[in-house]
């Protein structure tokens, strides 16, 4: 296999890792609450910027990642508890509320961190390249780390959803929301905490992505678009679908940029159009 093919596969896999981390939060909140949370991209970007400031203060990348995640979790809790809850059940209003908060956060970022693009330095331990055995190819260590982290998060989410009481309640809520509330489970609290978890994942993804690429005005919408592609392709509300969606999107993106860069966006949206027309619920989505 030629060098560029191998590299494109690796690049696609590692990009898919970042896309999965970002999209998993969105798919989680969607599957439970049936609201397309357009604030997700803004959570990503704001989390990245918070991480940047925390990194400057503490010089610890791990603390920065957690801080980015936790701040966004708090913001998400606030959004759910005080704004979305009022509009529960009205899809249009819920989406509009999430859209307005996204715009407000975007402008606040501009005021606080300014309009210039920024980047988070790669932590020393993860800098540089390693030689991948067997194929003997040098590859950036940080990207491998990202892939590993995504696998850990997949494992963590899977265990959480399958093995813990809380996770089982969430899945039950996804399947039959009325039944769960009839059983006397506090559904409101469930919603709020899942929304918070989704915000945490987005904020942390922002720090990871800001280290991997850059943070800049407009990045929130770029990431939101990619994330939406992932969950549309994979099927809204399915964790397995999100993994497949992220892989498809990541690989298409990397192969398209390598071979036909002028058309990479076109090629990226092509499967979305095809899937929406043949299987509107996505590859792994359940019919509504």
């Amino acid at each position: 296999m030629s060098l560029i093919l191998l590299m494109s596969i690796l690049n696609g896999l590692t990009l898919a890792a970042l896309l999965f981390i970002t999209a998993s939060g969105l798919t989680l909140s969607f599957s439970l609450m049936r609201v397309v949370n357009l604030t997700h991209g803004a959570f990503y970007l704001a989390g990245g910027f918070v991480g940047l400031s925390v990194l400057k203060a503490t010089e610890s990348w791990i603390i920065a990642g957690l801080a980015g995640g936790l701040c966004m979790a708090a913001l998400a809790l606030f959004e759910e508890r005080f704004l979305l809850r009022w509009a529960r059940g009205n899809d249009l209003i819920e989406t509009l509320v999430s859209l307005s908060i996204a715009i407000i956060i975007g402008d606040l970022i501009l005021v606080i961190w300014g309009g210039y693009p920024k980047t988070i330095a790669i932590p020393q331990a993860l800098g540089g390249a390693i030689k991948i055995p067997i194929i003997n190819l040098p590859y950036p260590l940080y990207r491998i780390f990202m892939l590993g982290l995504a696998i850990v998060i997949i494992g963590g989410l899977w265990l959480f959803l399958k093995k813990t009481n809380f996770g089982i309640t969430i899945r039950a809520g996804v399947d039959n929301f009325q039944m769960v509330s009839a059983l006397g489970i506090n559904v409101r609290r469930l919603f709020t905490s899942v929304f918070g978890l989704s915000g945490f994942l987005a904020g942390m993804a922002g720090v990871i992505g800001g280290t991997f690429m850059m943070l800049g005005i407009g990045e929130d919408w770029r990431i939101l678009t990619l994330t939406l592609i992932v969950i549309i392709v994979g099927g809204m509300g399915s964790l397995g679908g999100t993994i497949v969606g992220a892989l498809i999107t990541g690989l298409i993106y990397s192969f398209a940029t390598a071979f036909i860069p002028e058309f990479s966006l076109f090629v990226l949206f092509l499967p979305v159009a095809i899937i929406l027309s043949i299987r509107p619920q996505g590859l792994f989505g359940k019919e509504v």
Partner: peptide, 20 residues
Amino acid sequence: RIWHPVDAVDFSSIMAKLTG
């Protein structure tokens, strides 16, 4: 000349191409 979309996020594939 290599052109990529204005909003490109990941340049890794271009880097691979440049190496070659």
